[in-house]
């Protein structure tokens, strides 16, 4: 008897659970870096942003060694706003996509910069952004 009640009421409680608020024009997006792979990440507590740096093989090589990038090197820095994780107090997670920047090395040591999407959270010249992006080091995984 007790157990039946226990069960019934549990079922009732669970059906009464709240659903996530409807967000039909919003999506859970995953950035698609194409041929590039993950190289490094960062977190800026002042700007409340998180970034991921993607690149091709030669980007990985030049950032690991701190060399000038060879022609054909491509890097993309993708920056997001972060928030408290809605499911766990004490954890943060990336939210809105803020910007996508691309750095590309051409022949004769030339380096091109492009803001593909969004806006920068702090004004900076192209040269500053190139220097900043090229200071990333690949993450360590055994």
């Amino acid at each position: 008897m007790n157990r039946m009640l226990y069960l019934l009421l549990t079922v009732a409680f669970f059906t009464a659970c709240k659903n996530e608020r409807s967000t039909h024009d919003q999506a859970r997006i995953v950035f698609e870096p194409g041929d590039l792979q993950f190289i490094a990440s960062s977190l800026n507590p002042k700007l409340e942003t998180m970034s991921v740096l993607y690149g091709n093989d030669s980007a990985l090589q030049s950032l690991a060694k701190g060399n000038h990038p060879a022609a054909g090197t491509v890097m993309k820095l993708v920056t997001w706003r972060y928030h408290d994780n809605p499911q766990y107090f004490g954890s943060k997670i990336n939210g809105e996509l803020l910007s996508v920047e691309t750095v590309q090395a051409g022949s004769h040591d030339s380096i091109a910069y492009r803001l593909d999407f969004g806006t920068l959270q702090r004004p900076a010249t192209q040269a500053e952004r190139i220097t900043y992006i090229m200071r990333y080091k690949p993450v360590q995984i055994p």
Binding site: T23, Q26, A27, R28, I29, E32, G95, E96
Partner: peptide, 18 residues
Amino acid sequence: LFDVPMKVNPASLTEKIL
């Protein structure tokens, strides 16, 4: 899973990025 991307970006963004 805790770390699924938050549902805070316009759906149209996916095509834009792609």
